[in-house]
Structures are given as structure tokens and as C-alpha cells.
Design a protein around this nucleic acid. Structure first.
Lengths: 208, 208
DNA sequence: AAATTCTGAGACACAGATGTCTCAATTCGG
DNA sequence: CCGAATTGAGACATCTGTGTCTCAGAATTT
């Protein structure tokens, strides 16, 4: 039984991330409380959804904080962000689904701030030569968040082991985002490689 | 004005991919028709959603067909799939949101078949040494579809230019999925790099 | 030009979810 | 051990969206 607001929110995420249109009944049952108590804790469905969104954004903001994304090497910062964000991947999955469905200005502002911080990280990484410049920072931000959300869905549905989550996300994303796969961890780049590998090759349409 | 069923479905996708809970009013207005005509074309909301899902899955199946993902080099096959799937990225975005929300067995079967085909492509690529084996084929499938959906959302909201879509998707994903970034596309690899880049490095948690 | 067909607008009932209330039961605290 | 507070279950009104219908107007065909 979960009478605490935060505990109820956690349970609500579990339902809403996979089924955004879940009824109050289901949410209440998922939290182990009655619909009446749920209404006592939150004035209404709208308020509940808003609180879940706010919780998700605050968690993601906290992940950005603990990762200190504006400090140090960009690749290391991103790896720290992965580790910090993966535990709240389900929240991010909910946010990705609800995305720009909010009418509350506070929530939208909070959302844009976090996206801006993510964008700044990738932009900084590009300026430092860590991230590839052929891919826009906006797309990198978007793709990163999409993959975090995908991690959340996959974990929740049992398609991905939680222990593998951070590794899978970091390896897949960094492999595509890093400019030089192995050279970025240290401040001094050892051997600049002019061949950008798959950077400017055109996709092939013909079948061999 | 769009009286054609397929044209209406296209318009419906534009609304439903971003707002899965859109009312029949909005869908009708988006299609430029009245709610009455929308009901004449589709028996009800449930049928409409099902038809949109079926259209999306058929388009994705067609993309897998035209890409001939079971033939030839796995990387080239994936690049062909990217080119074939990106035009229907919005459909995939809708599917990603609706995911396993369907109760129709036909739709679910169709869905699983396509996922299995995607999975088979990655498994084959791993067996051929093209794709990394540290990342499970299931995760690669999931992540690929998530990114296709992300492309759809980004294009629809104007955050990504349609011309950049296929390139951005292919480069980011292949960069993280390919075992050796530059060696697989052309028969003669320009400069095979033995360092496996970010493959087996542990994520770093400490702040420098 | 006339007739047929199709569309759009509106009205209507129905179903489902939400929000509010009351009351019994359980739990917690004194 | 008793009183206060909180919870759960249910009833109830309300509201929103859906599905169906009718009818007038427009478009197409003959």
C-alpha cells in the first residue's frame, strides 16, 4: 500500500509510460490504493499527469546535475549522464510519449531547459572535436532522448535486462556520436585521423 | 479535400503520431472532411486506428521488401532499409507510440513478423561479423525502430530537415552498430582499424 | 437541365470516465 | 481501551466523446 505521493507517482509512471490513456482506476489499482484516495492525493487526472511530468523532468534535471554535463570531457560527461539517466528511463519514456502535449507553461519551460542543457552538451562536444559535426546537435539531443526512452520501454517490457541498459545505450549512441571512436577520453587527442569513416558516404540504394 | 481512404489515413497519421488521443473532430478537420464523412469511410474510431496501424506496418514491411534485407551485405542492407523506411518515418512514430496497445491479433502478428525480420537482419549481420556482438540483436532492433520513430517526430515538428533524415539516421545508428566503422561497405576497405573503439570500455562514473 | 450521389452541419442518445459525496471499516495515536 | 483520522467501497451527477440519424446544399453524372 502506497499512501505517499511520490510512491503513488512511481506506480503511476509504471502504468502511464506504457499506456498513456490509462484510467484513474488502473492507476489507483497499480498504486494499491483506491480511486478515492488517489483523488485525495491529486486534485484530478490533469494534476496527476502534470505531477508525473514534473517528476520526470526533475529527475532528468537531477541526472544532468549529478553528471555535471558542463564539466570535463564531453564523452565522459555523456557517459556519466547515461549512468545517471538510465535508472529513470521509464520516466523519460513517459515524457517522450507525452512530449509536447502539456499546456502548462511551467512544465514546458522545464522541458525546454533540459533539452537546452542536452543540446549545449553536444554543441560543446562538437566544438571540442569530440562529437561528430556532420550530425546536428539538435538531432543528437533528440536521438539520445529517444534512446533513453527506448531503454525505458524495453526494460519495462522485459526485452532488455536492466544491468545491460547503461552499457547498451552508451555503446550504441557513443559509437554513432563520437568523432574519433577511441581518442576522446583523454584531453589531448593522440592521433587526429582525417578519414571520417562513415561520415560523408552516401547511402547505397542498389542491391549487390 | 480528401475523400480517398488512403489520403484520409495519411492525414490521420499526421495528427495521431503526435497526439494519439486526438478526437475524431481533429482527425476529420486535419483531413479536411467532416466528422460524418470520416464515419462513412471508417466504421468508428477503433477501425480507423486499426487501419492506420495496418498501413504503417504494411509500409514498413514494404520497406523491408524493397531493401531486401535478407540479401547481400548486412550494412548495405541496413542502409537500403534506412532509405526505404525514412519516408514513412511518421507512420513508424505512430506505431512506436501505439506499440503493443493493439488488441487485434492480425495487427499484433503483423507487428511481430516485421520485428522478427529486423531481428534476423541484425543477427545475420552479427554472424557475418558486420555488426557488434556486444549489443544484442534485440536491442539493435528496438533502438533502430526507436530512432526511425524519432526521425518521424523530429521531421514532423520541424526539428530536422527531411533531406538530412536518412543521413542522420544511418550515420548515427551505423556508427554505433557497426563492428568496424569503415570496413564493411566497399569490398576493399580503405584502412581497417583494429581498435574496436568503444566496444568493451566500461562507462566512467567519476568526474575528472 | 434534371436527377442522382455525396458531403457537411447539426441534433440526438448512449457509453464511459471523471469528480464529488457519504458512510462503514480499519488503522493509528493518546 | 477509546477517540480521531484515514481509507475503501459505493452511489451519484456531470461531462466529454462517440456513433447514428436527418436534412439541406453542392457536386457530379446523364
Amino acid at each position: 500500500m502506497a499512501t505517499d505521493r511520490d510512491t503513488v507517482l512511481e506506480a503511476a509512471v509504471g502504468v502511464l509510460s506504457r499506456r498513456p490513456t490509462a484510467h484513474m482506476d488502473e492507476i489507483a489499482r497499480a498504486a494499491g490504493i483506491s480511486r478515492a484516495t488517489l483523488h485525495r492525493l491529486f486534485p484530478g487526472r490533469e494534476a496527476l499527469i502534470r505531477e508525473v511530468g514534473r517528476l520526470g523532468l526533475e529527475r532528468f534535471a537531477a541526472a544532468l546535475d549529478t553528471a555535471a554535463t558542463e564539466r570535463g570531457d564531453a564523452e565522459a560527461a555523456l557517459r556519466r549522464l547515461v549512468d545517471a539517466a538510465v535508472p529513470d528511463a521509464m520516466l523519460c519514456a513517459f515524457l517522450a510519449g507525452e512530449n509536447q502535449l502539456y499546456e502548462d507553461d511551467d512544465i514546458n519551460d522545464l522541458w525546454e531547459v533540459q533539452i537546452a542543457r542536452l543540446h549545449a552538451l553536444f554543441l560543446r562536444g562538437q566544438q571540442e572535436g569530440v562529437f561528430r559535426i556532420e550530425l546536428s546537435a539538435a538531432w543528437l539531443s533528440e536521438a539520445f532522448f529517444d534512446l533513453v526512452a527506448g531503454i525505458g520501454w524495453a526494460i519495462q517490457d522485459g526485452r532488455l535486462a536492466p544491468r545491460e541498459a547503461a552499457f547498451s545505450l552508451a555503446e550504441l549512441f557513443l559509437g554513432g556520436a563520437l568523432r574519433r571512436p577511441a581518442a576522446a577520453a583523454t584531453p589531448a587527442a593522440p592521433s587526429p585521423d582525417p578519414t571520417h569513416s562513415t561520415s560523408d558516404r552516401k547511402p547505397e540504394t542498389d542491391i549487390p
